[in-house]
């Protein structure tokens, strides 16, 4: 059972760092690198902070910036939530 879905993450990303009209944040972006989506390290740090507040899952500082895609973030969050 996932605590966070791709749609949840999408919402947080847009709230934390906006979206381009040109980049499709819609659709299946799980494996699209953040760089291609136009999200930088600040966007990811802000996103990680909001995830922690809303889902109670803390991603260690030094791991956050290594998460290259939305899929990797979901994986890390859901694993951490499951206590894996």
């Amino acid at each position: 059972m996932s605590v966070m879905t791709l749609d949840d993450l999408r919402r947080i990303l847009v709230e934390c760092a906006g979206e381009d009209d040109s980049t499709a944040v819609a659709g299946d972006i799980a494996d699209v690198p953040f760089e291609d989506l136009g999200y930088d390290s600040l966007a990811l740090m802000e996103t990680a902070a909001r995830i922690e507040q809303r889902f109670g899952v803390r991603l260690p500082d030094d791991e956050v910036l290594d998460l290259a895609t939305p899929g990797a973030v979901l994986d890390a969050v859901n694993k951490a939530a499951a206590g894996v």
């Binding site: 709230e15 934390c16 760092a17 906006g18 979206e19 381009d20 009209d21 136009g38 600040l42 802000e46």
Partner: peptide
């Protein structure tokens, strides 16, 4: 302005 600039 680009939407990207608004949150910051």
């Amino acid at each position: 302005l680009p939407n990207r600039l608004l949150p910051q």
